[in-house]
Amino acid sequence: MKKEVPIVMGFILGISIIAGVFVTGVPWLTTWKNLLDEWFLVVQAWAVAVGVVNLTQIHSRRVSQKREGWFYSVWLMICMFGMIVFGVFIAKSPQNEGWRWMYNQLIAPMNATVYSTLVFYIGAAAYRAFRVRNLEATVLLVAAVILMLGRVPLGKVLLGGTWIEKTADWILNVPNSAGMRGIQLGATLGAIATALRILVGIERGHLGGTGE
């Protein structure tokens, strides 16, 4: 029963959502799907609470066992619970000055900093990866250099004319688009297949098992 009930529920709810999206003109089905959408929003909001519990369990264990880098776990929990306590009991509104300050002056710059550091990693990774080891690597190297020069104004200044820009556009519009379409089609078909396996109960990993 522990496995069968969730599978049956998953099947009924999953089919309801699919039918609700693709079948029109059936009022009760639309009403049912709208209700399920609302449930989804509530469940998703509560998933945050589950996430907090999960993070607390994992990081408490790391601290109690004094694993490598345990002090980062302490800091994570201080920040997490600090924001929760401040938000729920002190700020009580997203418009609270202190709350907005924490968000705009702490979280936003940190978020931007993490993203900004990518340029350094990408630069170093490009230097190490783009080597003329074989034909495939050479093609990748040439395409990367053309795109790097063709997508910035300096390319035209250094090389003259618009050929570099046009070549970069061609790479993006023809070989890149063809490859991306293939990847996206493949990924979508894979997602449909996985969804069907979950709906009919073949795939059971989400129930805590090991699959089939």
Partner: peptide, 24 residues
């Protein structure tokens, strides 16, 4: 920012060229 992006791309290309000379 486009100036910064232009010159950072140029720098990466320079390093790629140097790396390949060394590699060859």
């Amino acid at each position: 920012g486009m100036d910064a992006q232009s010159f950072s791309h140029a720098l990466i290309i320079l390093f790629i060229i140097l790396g390949n000379i060394g590699y060859i």
